[in-house]
Measured scan of single mutants.
Amino acid sequence: GSLMYASIFGNVSAIIQRLYSGTARYHTQMLRVREFIRFHQIPNPLRQRLEEYFQHAWSYTNGIDMNAVLKGFPECLQADICLHLNRSLLQHCKPFRGATKGCLRALAMKFKTTHAPPGDTLVHAGDLLTALYFISRGSIEILRGDVVVAILGKNDIFGEPLNLYARPGKSNGDVRALTYCDLHKIHRDDLLEVLDMYPEFSDHFWSSLEITFNLRDTNMIPGSPGSTELEGGFSRQRKRKLSFRRRTDKDTEQPGEVSALGPGRAGAGPSSRGRPGGPWGESPSSGPSSPESSEDEGPGRSSSPLRLVPFSSPRPPGEPPGGEPLMEDCEKSSDTCNPLSGAFSGVSNIFSFWGDSRGRQYQELPRCPAPTPSLLNIPLSSPGRRPRGDVESRLDALQRQLNRLETRLSADMATVLQLLQRQMTLVPPAYSAVTTPGPGPTSTSPLLPVSPLPTLTLDSLSQVSQFMACEELPPGAPELPQEGPTRRLSLPGQLGALTSQPLHRHGSDPGS
């Protein structure tokens, strides 16, 4: 009898404990919600809404976190579960008819179910419309201010047509639940991603989709105040780019002037030289400038040598048109050559190039014969006009050509200096018209024969001689050997007369 009593008592207590286990969990969670309300000092109306929603959600799901349970299964099984949970929507909604099984599984994985109690606001006026909503159960109302403009029910759709707008718009009203509602919502990016994977279904979906109420604000059109608020930074940046392009296009129409201050000032006329910023005076940081632009901040801005204009002085008759350009485009679109090309026009420029290279940067340069637009006047290309890779490749080509020119210049200078040193070592320090008596009659020769300089066969020296023939050397430049009979510069000019005159010897006659 005691054994029977113990078994009955144990079973009854276990049954009672299981009955009250759900209630215990409910009270535990309710205590957490109330502690949250007390800690954050939530006001009474919002506090009442929180408690009511918790009670309804507990009775609806029995305190089970559906998302946590669903995430515990593998992905393939999750797709089947989501397809079952959203079967009513996918079967009865017209846009989803005719979709393949794979497309429906992908869509079912992207849908999220939302449960809303009465009085809950789903979308506020001015919120971004980031999702498309399908009503599965219940009814909602749409308000503009305090005026109800629409009441939607089961199988209705609200949001915005995503295929017509590249960016999400703003809501033009509040969406509030009238009863307990079940909503299926899919985010904008998720829907577009699935439709991109199934393009054959995309056309059918957009053609058959009928949005019951379009929440997009109709005033959000390009150029409206609301649109400016939504895309303020983007609009200002776009206007700045367009104004920069218009100014650079105007600059290219004036090829007669070359400016070292950047493309923003290349198009300024002579009357605007004294102004601080020219056409860019209202925004000094709008356009890029070269490193020399920092010198323009000092006094005497109108007389600054940074602004270059072609000189009108005539060229000498024998002067060549100019050196070879550094870039391939210089032959086609440049009416002034790079300062480095002028360094190779003569030997005198070679000796004085490194010492006063900055001073020569603004000297007169030889002109190319074609009066085409200036290379320095070409505006900086924006990322939309020329690819970045093209600019980098041009810079690399320019750097390689500069290296080759520097190597060639160093070799030419070394060769010229070597020839000058050899000339100085071969010439005796001094010569006299009267020579010392020699031991015999073989001493009648006034000077030792001097062998002429070897013929220069280097390509670089031939180019130097060509430049010497075309360029007029300055007075202080050293002379180079030329073709024809060679003669030492330090010898007297009348050596031929010395050989014809008898030598005057000093000596005593033994017979006297």
Rank of each mutant, 00 (worst) to 15 (best):
V194N: 01
Q501Y: 10
A469P: 07
E200K: 04
Q463M: 13
G145A: 10
W206P: 03
S334C: 12
P485F: 12
L365I: 14
K239S: 15
P371Q: 13
T407A: 06
V464R: 11
V147H: 08
V464H: 07
S348Q: 12
D182A: 10
T212G: 04
H184K: 11
R315T: 12
N377E: 04
N377Q: 01
D189S: 07
Q361D: 13
S272G: 10
N214Q: 01
P168I: 09
R137D: 13
A414L: 05
I211G: 03
T228M: 07
P161M: 08
Q501N: 12
I186T: 01
N219Q: 13
H184Q: 08
Q423Y: 13
M424H: 14
F213K: 01
C181M: 01
R273L: 10
I221L: 11
L402P: 01
D509E: 08
S432A: 11
L417H: 09
C470Y: 14
H506I: 11
P449S: 12
C368R: 15
R188A: 08
I211Y: 03
S289F: 13
S285C: 07
G264Q: 12
T228P: 07
A469D: 11
F201T: 05
V175Q: 02
G359L: 07
S334R: 12
R176P: 02
P310R: 10
L183A: 04
E141L: 05
Q237S: 11
R273M: 05
F344N: 10
G233R: 09
V147T: 13
V416D: 08
L340F: 04
P485A: 03
K170S: 06
L376G: 11
D182P: 01
T415D: 11
I221E: 12
A411M: 09
E210R: 06
G126I: 01
F234K: 10
A477E: 13
G476C: 07
E471D: 13
A469E: 11
A166L: 09
P429A: 10
R247I: 10
E471I: 08
I186Y: 02
D196R: 10
S393V: 11
T372I: 09
S207L: 07
F311M: 06
F351D: 01
P454Y: 05
S382R: 06
P321S: 11
E472D: 13
K239W: 06
T457G: 11
S382G: 09
S352W: 03
P441K: 04
G138A: 01
R400T: 05
E364T: 07
G173V: 10
E471Y: 06
L495D: 08
D174W: 07
R360A: 08
G264W: 12
E319T: 14
G476W: 15
T228I: 07
R394F: 08
S313Q: 11
Q501R: 12
N155C: 06
Y180I: 04
F134L: 02
Q463D: 08
S500V: 10
E297C: 03
D196A: 10
D396E: 10
T442V: 10
G159Q: 02
T179K: 03
T218H: 12
P510N: 06
L480P: 09
L230D: 13
D127S: 04
H506K: 14
L426T: 13
L152R: 01
Q418S: 08
M424R: 08
E200Q: 07
G126K: 02
S171L: 03
D459S: 05
V450T: 15
P492H: 06
R315W: 07
P379Y: 01
R404K: 10
T179A: 04
T407L: 08
D459C: 05
P429D: 12
S508E: 12
R394E: 04
T407I: 08
R176I: 08
I135M: 03
N163S: 12
R394V: 11
D203P: 07
S207I: 04
M327D: 14
Q482C: 10
E297Y: 15
L261Q: 15
S348T: 11
P255Y: 15
T455W: 05
F351M: 07
Q363M: 15
L178E: 02
R167T: 14
L395T: 05
L129A: 03
R360G: 07
L419N: 06
L456V: 10
P310T: 03
L458E: 13
E141D: 01
G287E: 10
N349M: 03
Q401F: 13
L178A: 11
S500D: 15
E231Q: 12
P454L: 06
N219A: 12
P452A: 10
P279T: 05
L495C: 12
S313D: 08
P379D: 08
Q421I: 03
D156M: 06
L195E: 02
S303P: 08
L398F: 10
S460H: 04
P474T: 09
L375E: 10
P485R: 07
R408K: 06
G346R: 11
S352Y: 04
G169H: 01
V434P: 10
M197Q: 10
R307V: 10
R245F: 09
S139I: 07
K241L: 11
V258Y: 10
S302D: 09
M468G: 05
S381C: 05
G145K: 13
F213D: 01
G169S: 07
G346M: 06
S272I: 14
T336S: 10
S272E: 02
V427N: 04
G145N: 06
S235L: 10
G262I: 12
S443L: 08
Q401T: 05
Y180T: 11
R236I: 13
D335T: 08
L480S: 05
G269S: 12
G138W: 03
R360M: 15
F353C: 08
I142G: 02
E253F: 10
P222W: 06
E253Q: 14
S289R: 12
D251F: 13
S333Q: 10
D203T: 13
T252A: 12
R388E: 11
V427D: 05
A477Y: 15
E328D: 04
S208E: 13
S289I: 15
Q482G: 11
G496A: 07
F351P: 11
R408T: 04
T372C: 10
I140E: 01
S302Q: 13
P284D: 12
P317F: 15
S312T: 10
G355D: 10
D396P: 07
I140Y: 04
F201C: 11
S271L: 12
P325N: 04
F467D: 09
R315V: 06
R247V: 10
T252V: 10
D127I: 01
V147N: 11
Y133R: 02
A497L: 10
T442M: 06
I157R: 02
T444I: 13
R301P: 13
L448H: 15
V147Q: 09
K154R: 12
H504V: 11
F244Q: 10
P222H: 09
T218D: 13
G269H: 05
F234A: 12
P299R: 06
S465T: 08
K332Q: 09
R273H: 01
S271Y: 12
A433C: 12
Q501S: 12
D182K: 13
G438N: 15
L503D: 15
S290G: 11
G145P: 01
T179E: 06
S302Y: 06
R246H: 08
R245S: 10
L458K: 13
I151G: 01
H187W: 01
L326C: 07
F134D: 02
E392T: 15
L128V: 06
P429K: 05
L453R: 10
P449A: 09
P429Y: 15
R505N: 08
G269L: 11
S272R: 08
I211E: 01
R408F: 05
D203F: 07
V391Q: 15
M468Y: 13
S202D: 07
D182L: 11
L498M: 09
L453H: 09
R315M: 03
I211D: 02
R315A: 15
G355W: 04
E141W: 01
P478K: 15
P485M: 15
R137E: 11
E331H: 10
G145L: 04
T228A: 09
M327T: 12
T457C: 12
G256Y: 09
Q421E: 14
S136A: 08
G138Q: 01
S451I: 07
R188F: 05
Q482K: 05
Q423W: 05
S289Y: 04
L426I: 13
A497T: 10
D156C: 08
L152C: 03
L143R: 11
L376M: 10
S345N: 08
S357E: 14
G223Y: 10
Q466L: 08
G493N: 08
L261G: 10
M327W: 03
S445L: 06
V149I: 12
L132Y: 01
Q237Y: 09
